[in-house]
């Protein structure tokens, strides 16, 4: 027999949407396809996805895309308004704002990626453990979460940066440390709703360990809402990072971090508005992209309304 069951029968679309998948991979891809089909119907979400993808592409190809070097100063061409030579004008040192924004996309993306890779995972671990074990584990973990939650995020981040010293790495650490509590709360709430479900009881009755139940049965049910929340939070992370940069506590000169760029432009905001407005616009567009994407993901991953 040479027939392989993995070969799409009629077309790949039928293969993906079949009710009788033949393999693990097919089942998984079919599920992903169904999600994409639902996502695709939301125009705004697709727009958000395109913005976020554009950010990634711009960051990856920054040296190719940027017309100038981000640090190249031209003291004769300071504060030039947007023109054909400098599409978005130049700043106080005569650096091309567009080039700086393009390179700044790397910093923004790095901040977003680092925060997204740490805070939600920490929150997920803490929240599911608290929710699943209950009792004193829950009490201790949730009191810690409450305390962390009680401080305004920016102020706490400020305190951390002040203690650790300014710099973009410390800004990321500060943001990550201050942003896990909401994820822990979400994960705990999700855990509480499924903790007594029959399928969790069934797993216990098979002799599954608590770790196995949390990792294999509970976490998969929490990640959907965490992904949504993380995506929606990314706008806030970018703003906090920019805020720290603006206050001089985040990225240090001459790094083209968007928040720091606004800070540099603030003295000229009345006459040379573009110096501050262009990075502001970039922050706005990227934040909006993450928000739209998050809303779309919520409809796909978290269909509670149905």
């Amino acid at each position: 027999m040479t027939a392989r069951s993995d070969i799409p029968p009629a077309g790949w679309r039928d293969w993906l949407t079949t009710d009788t998948p033949q393999s693990r991979t097919q089942a998984r891809l079919g599920r992903a396809w169904a999600g994409w089909t639902a996502f695709r119907r939301n125009r705004l979400a697709v727009a958000g996805l395109l913005i976020v993808l554009a950010l990634v592409v711009v960051a990856a190809l920054a040296p190719v895309l940027a017309p100038y070097h981000p640090y190249a100063q031209d003291l004769n061409g300071r504060l030039l308004p947007p023109s054909l030579a400098h599409w978005l004008g130049t700043d106080a040192f005569g650096r091309d704002i567009l080039s700086r924004l393009i390179h700044g996309a790397r910093l923004t993306l790095m901040i977003v990626a680092l925060v997204a890779a740490t805070a939600p995972l920490a929150g997920l671990a803490i929240g599911t453990a608290a929710g699943y074990f209950g009792g004193w584990v829950d009490t201790v973990l949730m009191r810690i979460t409450d305390i962390a939650l009680a401080f305004p995020k920016l102020i706490l981040a400020l305190a951390f940066v002040a203690a650790l010293g300014p710099g973009i790495e410390n800004a990321v650490i500060a943001i990550a440390i201050t942003s896990w509590p909401p994820y822990a709360r979400i994960a705990r709430a999700e855990t509480l709703t499924v903790r007594h479900a029959d399928f969790i009881s069934a797993a216990r009755l098979q002799g599954a360990s608590s770790l196995r139940i949390i990792l294999g049965h509970i976490m998969p049910l929490c990640v959907a809402s965490l992904i949504v929340r993380t995506t929606l939070d990314m706008a806030g992370v970018i703003l906090t990072a920019a805020g720290l940069g603006f206050l001089g506590l985040g990225a240090q000169p001459p790094l083209p971090e968007w928040g720091a760029m606004i800070a540099n432009g603030r003295q000229y905001v009345l006459e040379q508005w573009w110096v501050a407005a262009m990075p502001g616009l970039a922050i706005f567009i990227v934040s909006l992209g993450f928000n739209l994407l998050g809303d779309g993901l919520r409809d796909v991953l978290d269909p509670k309304g149905d």
Partner: peptide
């Protein structure tokens, strides 16, 4: 044990294959 509610006793994100493989793995 088998539970009453067939809608609540299977993990919504696991395939039948995964559901049956779990006790074997444990």
């Amino acid at each position: 044990m088998v539970f009453q509610d067939p809608y609540g006793s299977l993990h919504p994100r696991h395939t039948v294959d995964r559901i049956l493989a779990e006790p074997i793995a444990i």
